[in-house]
C-alpha cells in the first residue's frame, strides 16, 4: 500500500521542484530585464560613450546585418500567404487584406523575425558571453572597475529589443510588398497598390500596433536577457559554452512562444 502511494508523491514532488525551479528562473530573468530597463530609462543620460558604442555595434550586427536574410524569408512568407489567400479567398480583396493583417502583421511577422534573431544573434550572444566568462574577461572587467552589467548586458538588451522592432517592421514591409506583387502576377486583380495598402490600413486598429510592440520589443528584451544570463552563468570550461548556447536557444524559443500566445490571447479578449 505504501509503495502505491509513494509513486504519486514522488511524481508530485518532482513536478513541484521543477515548477519552483522554473519560477525562480523566470524571476531571475525578469529581475535582469527590470534592472536593465531601469538603467536604460533613468540611467540613459549617464550612459558612457563606450557603452553607446557597444549598443551601436549590437544594433549593426543584430539588425542591419540580418536584413538580407530576413528580407529573403519575408519575401517567401509574403508570397506563400498571398498564393494561399488567392487560391482559397479569390474574388474577396477584403478577406485577403484581413488575412494579411491577421497572419503576417499580427502573428508571423513578429514571430518569424524573433526566430531569426534568436538563431542568428541570440545564440551568438550566449557564445560570446560564455567565452568571455571562460577566458576571464568578465572578471577582468570587474577587477578594472568596469561594471559588466552596464558594459555588456545593458547595450545588448536595448540593442536586441530595438533591432527586433526594426527588423519586424522590415519583415512585414517586404512580406506585404511581395504579397502584393505575387498577387498581381498570379491573379489578374483590379485592386491597385494604393487600394491594397488602404485595404490593409482599414484592417488595422490601435490594438494591432500595441500588440506588435508587445510582440517585438519585449521578446527582444527576453531573448537578450536569457542569452546574457546563460552566457554569463556558463561553467568555467570551454565545453560548457555550447551547452549554454543550446540551453539559451531552447529557453528563448520557449519564452517567445509563451509570450506570443499570452499577448494574442489578450488581444482577442480585448
Amino acid at each position: 500500500m505504501a509503495s502505491v502511494l509513494a509513486l504519486p508523491r514522488i511524481t508530485l514532488a518532482a513536478v513541484g521542484a521543477r515548477v519552483i525551479w522554473w519560477f525562480g528562473y523566470v524571476l531571475q530573468i525578469a529581475t535582469l530585464i527590470g534592472h536593465g530597463l531601469w538603467r536604460l530609462t533613468f540611467g540613459y543620460g549617464q550612459m558612457r560613450s563606450v557603452t553607446r558604442g557597444v549598443l551601436v555595434r549590437q544594433v549593426l550586427f543584430t539588425a542591419v546585418e540580418a536584413l538580407p536574410f530576413t528580407g529573403m524569408i519575408a519575401a517567401i512568407v509574403g508570397a506563400s500567404v498571398m498564393v494561399q489567400a488567392q487560391m482559397h479567398l479569390s474574388g474577396s480583396p477584403d478577406m485577403v487584406g484581413k488575412l494579411l493583417v491577421l497572419v503576417v502583421i499580427r502573428e508571423l511577422g513578429p514571430l518569424v523575425t524573433a526566430f531569426i534573431l534568436i538563431g542568428r544573434s541570440g545564440t551568438a550572444m550566449v557564445v560570446e558571453m560564455g567565452n568571455m566568462r571562460v577566458g576571464g574577461e568578465i572578471d577582468a572587467l570587474d577587477h578594472a572597475g568596469i561594471d559588466p552589467f552596464e558594459y555588456l548586458v545593458v547595450p545588448r538588451l536595448f540593442g536586441m529589443a530595438v533591432s527586433l522592432v526594426g527588423v519586424a517592421v522590415f519583415f512585414i514591409s517586404v512580406a506585404v510588398t511581395t504579397g502584393l506583387i505575387s498577387g498581381a502576377l498570379l491573379v489578374a486583380t483590379e485592386t491597385n497598390a494604393l487600394e491594397f495598402i488602404d485595404l490593409l490600413a482599414r484592417q488595422l486598429s490601435w490594438l494591432d500596433f500595441l500588440a506588435f510592440f508587445a510582440k517585438t520589443f519585449f521578446p527582444g528584451l527576453m531573448i537578450a536577457g536569457i542569452a546574457c544570463y546563460e552566457g554569463m552563468s556558463a561553467g568555467p570550461h570551454v565545453t560548457d559554452v555550447p551547452r549554454a548556447a543550446t540551453r539559451g536557444t531552447v529557453r528563448a524559443i520557449s519564452a517567445l512562444f509563451i509570450w506570443n500566445v499570452a499577448v494574442s490571447a489578450m488581444l482577442y479578449l480585448a
Binding site: 568571455m132 577566458g135 576571464g136 574577461e137 577582468a140 577587477h143 578594472a144
Partner: peptide, 12 residues
C-alpha cells in the same frame, strides 16, 4: 591597476 594572470583582454 589590476592585471589578472590571463591578461583579461577582450576578445571582441
Amino acid at each position: 591597476g589590476f592585471v589578472p594572470a590571463t591578461g583579461g583582454l577582450l576578445s571582441n
